[in-house]
Design a protein around this nucleic acid. Structure first.
Lengths: 357, 357
DNA sequence: CGTTTCTCGAAAAACGTTTTCTGAGGCGTG
DNA sequence: CACGCCTCAGAAAACGTTTTTCGAGAAACG
């Protein structure tokens, strides 16, 4: 009888004439219970529509079957794909995702993490630049498992899933170099992002290796947004010696570059080669057609979740594992040999094809 | 003293020499408690780093400060913007979002909803086509508040936030008609989506009103994906009397149309006008440049969350409210007058401008 | 001065589970 | 036949809160 509204375990206990502990055991199947009794209990539970309260269970077992996911902003196209991968594993494991947007603000992140901890999440997955911030670390060194995606700590060794940024960037630069480019611009991400940093370093190293122009003017520090890419391109356009190719450390950033290029009347790839990174879903559209470094984001999310599950389920904390995912250059139509054989000076003198004059 | 690991309310009770109830009251500030005592308690709580267990609180109070959000798939570009809007309100209210992907599968949705209910979410926000399915309704008629976004029930009156599809579609068709189009194709969404259905009906009505071609061949039923748009366009291309304009009931769908058009050598808007719906963030890129019906998705998500909060906080269930958001046609470069004044027969004969030949 | 009212805190009862502790009966074994 | 060891299931103790109940002392009031 649902006196209050919710049917509890004692309702089914009463209905069967058994004790609550027996019901619990019968349903959970942990302890041995007589087959006939179990049948009765299951029948009654079914009939009454009994559903165990997850929160009562959480309180008792100190396990919530819940994982926290912290991301900068769901609206950023690359993010949902990671989340989707995490979710794939989560549902398999009977877990539900608690989603938080940090907007890359430390104080927000701290408070969100606090909340997640208060809610006894079994673990957390973080896509965040602030993993080395003391306040964040203080919350992390507790016993709640966590794994980092795409931004790792320089000082700590954690479970981590990220792309092979060295190889990726090397491939990118080498590819452009092979096409004949010698002046390559880079729109990098914020310095606090390990991935941005790694890509930046790989860029510099490869540029040096291959004998391309090592010009600090060719580095533009952005923040992974469309606007950053847009501003970057406008900045590059002001240079007396402009880049003939641009690498954006991010597809959405590349879209911004692309957009600014359109605005400036620069055709891609005729006037400017552009290489992105991430391979967001829309990059493949013919209208976008962005050559980019493919990252299996959904798989990476899944890998992170697997790592988290491993840590959640293991008695003794396993030694941290870093999973570095190789990236693959997917070539579409945004790159070509430089118009003047790599000695570009005057992309601005070229008129866009759409107005033949 | 954290004997176990977690600092509980009795730890701070012990530390101050007060009773747990006193500590609870002092911290919550519900009942009057002596100022000095409160100070002591707060100090001790602060010093010990006490954080109340949200799950214990949930169990006791039957309120979890948690809301469930069911979406078809986070990876679908329009979805995250809704979520972001929901999250804006959620953090303001101290709530956290439990995110579920249903993939539009009823059984998944049912099981996800079950889980959410088990977790005692304070309410749910649903973006789902299956709100009229009996199994779903069975879960909904309980006392957990919920609000629907963009897909409403035909049989029940619920809290709902959706776009003004009649006005939106009427504006769209009228606009194209004004440009001179008389054969307008429609890529619609699944019939189980109320929004798709409403748009479809508005389309037919307006087409009739304005005296455009009423040809069932011009209706393609898709499922809101890029692929659907792509297939639709290829289908339209096979018609002997092709549409001179296409309305996609969805931006991502429009991207598919656009993509197929590129592939078919049809220039937009010269050979084909294209109108989307949603105004996803990327529609504004010059490369995409999609004229579309703007939907304030973040605001809609926020409105839905507000509605939910209202229902959660009110003693007596308020009468259901439907919020219909007006849409605004944002004109970019994907529409133009038909090449032959509305009597198009041969868009395929026009070559794209990029190869002037 | 006795009675009521108020203020403050402590004690205890929930909330709905799981798990530990007991205990009763049956059965094999020395 | 006594002993121990199973199998089964009930009672009770957690888990960490909030809320209700209760009680003691002080203040107000006749």
């Amino acid at each position: 009888m649902p006196d209050n509204g919710r049917i509890t375990i004692r309702d089914v206990a009463a209905a069967t004439g058994h004790a609550v502990s027996t019901v619990s055991n019968a349903l959970a199947g942990k302890r041995h219970v007589n087959e006939e009794t179990r049948r009765q209990v299951k029948e009654a539970a079914e009939r009454l529509g009994y559903r165990p309260s997850a929160v009562a269970r959480s309180l008792r077992m100190k396990l919530s079957s819940t994982i926290g996911v912290l991301v900068p902003d769901v609206s950023n196209p690359a993010i949902p794909e990671f989340i989707r991968g995490i979710d794939d594993i989560a549902v398999r494991e009977g877990c539900t995702i608690l989603l938080c947007n940090t907007d890359e603000l430390v104080e927000r992140q701290v408070s969100q993490m606090q909340t997640l901890l208060d809610r006894q999440v079994d673990g957390m997955i973080l896509i965040s630049q602030h993993c080395d911030t003391p306040e964040v670390r203080k919350l992390l060194d507790g016993k709640t498992p966590f794994v980092l995606i795409q931004r790792r700590s320089s000082r700590f060794r954690d479970d981590y899933v990220g792309s092979d940024n060295l190889q990726g960037m090397r491939d990118s630069v080498t590819y452009l170099h092979g096409l004949g480019h010698r002046r390559i611009g880079l729109v990098t991400g914020p310095g606090t992002s390990s991935t941005a940093q790694e890509r930046f370093e790989a860029f510099e190293a490869t540029i040096a290796d291959l004998g391309c122009d090592e010009d600090p003017d060719l580095i533009y520090r952005g923040d992974y947004t469309v606007e950053a890419g847009y501003d970057a391109m406008h900045y590059f356009a002001t240079l007396s010696k402009r880049p003939t190719a641009v690498i954006a450390s991010n597809d959405v950033c590349a879209l911004g570059v692309q957009d600014a290029a359109s605005e400036l009347g620069l055709s891609i790839p005729q006037d400017l080669s552009l290489l992105g990174c991430d391979d967001i879903d829309l990059a493949r559209l013919r209208r976008i057609n962005l050559s980019t470094l493919h990252l299996p984001k959904r798989e990476m999310g899944a890998a992170a979740a697997e790592l988290l599950m491993r840590r959640i389920h293991s008695k003794r904390p396993p030694t941290p594992r870093e999973i570095i995912i190789p990236t693959e250059l997917v070539l579409r139509e945004s790159c070509a040999a430089p118009a003047d054989g790599g000695n570009a000076k005057r992309p601005a003198e070229r008129r866009p094809l759409v107005s033949p004059g």
